[in-house]
């Protein structure tokens, strides 16, 4: 179990307990976090579950695979954070306290 905080575009934050092994995308969608679309259902195919994560968390996340990397523009970071596909990040105990920001657009 890890406590994950989602920050909406308007700055409002909500936190949820996510079970280990569940993806950040699933946690967001199950809790109706606005702005996380996840059109393909979590198969690394649509790039509509993008989130922004602060750089100091990156070493605790799995490295983006080639398929994920092929869908994210290198210069698409926002507010000093990097974009990732939330379906490709499984919750681990190490991610307890992670803060995830919803990007300005999925498209």
């Amino acid at each position: 179990m890890a406590r994950i905080t989602f920050v909406a575009l308007d700055g409002s934050a909500k936190s949820y307990d996510a079970a280990e092994g569940v993806s950040l995308m699933r946690c967001a969608v199950d809790n109706d976090v606005p702005g996380i679309v996840a059109e393909c259902g979590g198969a690394c195919a649509c790039a509509t579950c993008q989130v922004l994560i602060a750089p100091d968390w990156l070493d605790r996340l799995p490295v983006a695979g080639p398929n994920e990397a092929s869908m994210i523009d290198e210069d698409s970071g926002e507010r000093g954070m990097v974009r990732r596909l939330s379906c490709q990040i499984e919750v681990t105990p190490e991610l307890d306290g992670l803060v995830v920001h919803v990007p300005s657009s999925q498209y």
Binding site: A45, A47, P66, N67, S70, M71, D73, S76, Y107
Partner: peptide, 11 residues
């Protein structure tokens, strides 16, 4: 898919 994706990104 990784080869095709960059052609069709939103950007």
């Amino acid at each position: 898919r990784a080869f095709v994706n960059p052609i069709f990104t939103p950007k």
